[in-house]
């Protein structure tokens, strides 16, 4: 057989391969690539979705530099992302370590922690809206039993964003726990046995074995949770709609408002591309760090 390329495939094998990937590639081109390129084009126009787009060059990007709302939304998004990523991972790591032991009903607990992941953000947000209602919600009722005053969870500008982060952490923990559990179960028990023989305490074992071997997993969790958090929309839209006083407005919500409430689709596309670049850079940085850590290990 004559091998035709660097993959060592024959011509007919290469053709067959191309044919098999064609459906996915064609779908990708029409559903992802073309709209993305069109959105990039729109970001250089003024477009309200009905009239023809009008070319404004870098106008939308220049406008962004003086747009206070955009910077507020960017700041909120970053705060939301950083706290959500770190707290979720920390809580999940603790839970995963506990669930990795031989305890009773471990399957039940794993299911319980994962459950919020299954439900949609919209459904969860509606439930949380009622749970957190200042005078009538269950959360404040329980707090009042302990003589703790009722909190304006979502209606105070200073509390709304931390509350959103708390809800996001509650939902993310299940996903992170599953990933950590898989990683924990891949650690050789012999490492702990050897450490124990050497006289290492439980804390030393955790820091020098568990944590070190979980760093690549943690970076993966940081990247995934980070990307999802940077795109936060459903929960914010449903729970606070960006209020009160823009205290919880996120970049994606700002994109939505500009596009569909204010009729500035061109500007919204420009915002979307800036967000894309931010996510791209952060993901690239994270991948680089993972690679370095992998080499170190």
């Amino acid at each position: 057989m004559r091998k035709s390329n660097r993959l060592g495939l024959t011509k007919s094998e290469a053709h067959a391969g191309l044919i098999f990937v064609a459906p996915a590639v064609i779908l990708f081109i029409f559903i992802r690539l073309v709209p993305t390129i069109y959105a990039l084009f729109l970001s250089f126009t003024q477009f309200n979705m009905v009239k023809d787009p009008v070319w404004v060059g870098l106008g939308n990007y220049i406008k962004m530099t003086g747009d206070k709302e955009f910077f507020i939304s960017l700041q909120n998004t970053l705060v939301y992302t950083i706290f959500n990523v770190i707290i979720s991972a920390a809580v999940a790591l603790g839970v995963a370590v506990l669930l990795n032991r031989k305890i009773r009903f471990v399957g039940f607990f794993r299911a319980i922690y994962y459950m919020p992941q299954i439900a949609s953000w919209i459904a969860l947000s509606m439930i949380w809206t009622y749970l957190l209602n200042p005078p009538y919600g269950l959360v404040n009722y329980i707090l009042s039993l302990f003589n703790i005053s009722k909190a304006p969870w979502l209606s105070s500008p200073s509390m709304a964003l931390p509350t959103l982060i708390m809800i996001a952490v509650w939902r993310n923990v299940g996903y992170d726990v599953v990933i950590y559990l898989a990683a924990l179960q891949g650690i050789q028990p012999s490492l702990y046995e050897a450490a124990e023989i050497d006289g290492a305490s439980k804390l030393q074992q955790f820091l020098n074995i568990t944590w070190k071997l979980l760093i690549p997993t943690t970076v993966y969790i940081f990247i995934m949770t980070g990307i999802f958090s940077l795109q936060a929309f459903d929960q914010v839209f449903q729970l606070t709609a960006g209020g009160p006083a823009d205290a919880t407005i996120t970049v994606v919500l700002q994109i939505y408002r500009q596009a569909f409430q204010f009729g500035q689709m061109g500007y919204a596309c420009a915002l979307a591309f800036v967000l894309f670049v931010v996510i791209f850079i952060l993901s690239g940085m994270s991948l680089k760090i993972t690679g370095r850590l992998g080499e170190t290990e």
Binding site: Y130, N133, P134, P135, Y136, P152, S155, S156, P244
Partner: peptide, 12 residues
């Protein structure tokens, strides 16, 4: 805030 006829966010 003064007459306290409502709590912000109480009515959904």
């Amino acid at each position: 805030n003064v007459y306290k006829v409502d709590d912000a966010g109480s009515i959904q």
